[in-house]
């Protein structure tokens, strides 16, 4: 089976027979490409069947995390979503969609524009309150214009995104992290609580569970 997580910017593909895992830009997916089952913002364009992203995240958490009580947060390019389980039972979920979103995409655009290599930047204590990616970028440009180094300004935005994600998930002691932003080491280092990183194919574990239930 071909499983697909079709995010806003990237497609994560899993071939369950060969266990081959691929990441492509959504714009590079052939128009005729069709997965068997999938999830994600762009899924209706590329898959025959689909599962809700939060359901996939919840399935993945139950399958991959060896604890009954956990918070699993997926930070992608367009949005962020999380699920909380306590004693093996679902208790909370949320999904920021419009306001508060586009942070991942904004950080990627900003890094390219300011020529910042995030892996070489130290986390900042000060932070920019990031209501959304677009407003966050505006603050960074203002700081740079005011004489602050681009690396520092961008790192403050990342710290702001981390604080925002921490509050969004209701301030847990520990967060399991997945999604495109886990590739950004500065993001991981800037989180204000303990984190455990899962890879960006995590949602596909939840899709796989759903796909198997169809047979």
């Amino acid at each position: 089976m071909i499983l697909l997580d079709a995010g806003t910017t990237y497609a994560k593909i899993l071939n369950t027979e060969t266990d081959e895992r691929t990441v492509k830009r959504i714009s590079e997916l052939e128009k005729t490409f069709r997965a068997d089952v999938g999830t994600g913002h762009n899924i209706s364009r590329f898959s025959k069947r689909s599962i809700n992203e939060i359901i996939a995240l919840a399935n993945a958490g139950r399958s991959l995390i060896n604890e009954n009580t956990f918070t699993l947060l997926d930070v992608g390019s367009r949005d962020a979503k999380f699920v909380v389980f306590e004693g093996g039972n679902f208790v909370h979920s949320d999904w920021n969609t419009e306001c508060g979103a586009f942070t991942g995409q904004a950080l990627e655009i900003l890094g390219n524009y300011l020529n910042v290599d995030y892996s070489k930047v130290e986390p900042q204590k000060e932070f920019i309150t990031a209501t959304c990616g677009l407003l966050g970028m505006g603050h960074v440009f203002d700081m740079v214009a005011g004489g602050i180094e681009p690396e520092t300004a961008a790192a403050r935005l990342i710290k702001g995104v981390c604080i925002s994600m921490y509050r969004f998930t209701r301030k847990p002691k520990k967060i399991y992290l997945t999604g495109g932003l886990v590739q950004n080491s500065l993001f991981i280092k800037s989180m204000p609580c303990e984190t455990i990183t899962l890879d960006r194919f995590t949602l596909l574990e939840g899709v796989k569970e759903y796909a198997l239930s169809l047979n």
Binding site: N52, I54, A58, V91, D94
Partner: peptide, 30 residues
């Protein structure tokens, strides 16, 4: 935030796919 099983959903001009997905996931997981 006070409700043991509550979720906040807002809507601007009309219903978006993301809002529907968030809502249905909440109802399904509960």
């Amino acid at each position: 935030s006070k409700h043991p099983r509550g979720i906040f959903i807002d809507m601007d001009i009309g219903l978006t796919r993301s809002t529907v997905a968030k809502l249905t996931a909440f109802l399904q997981l509960n």
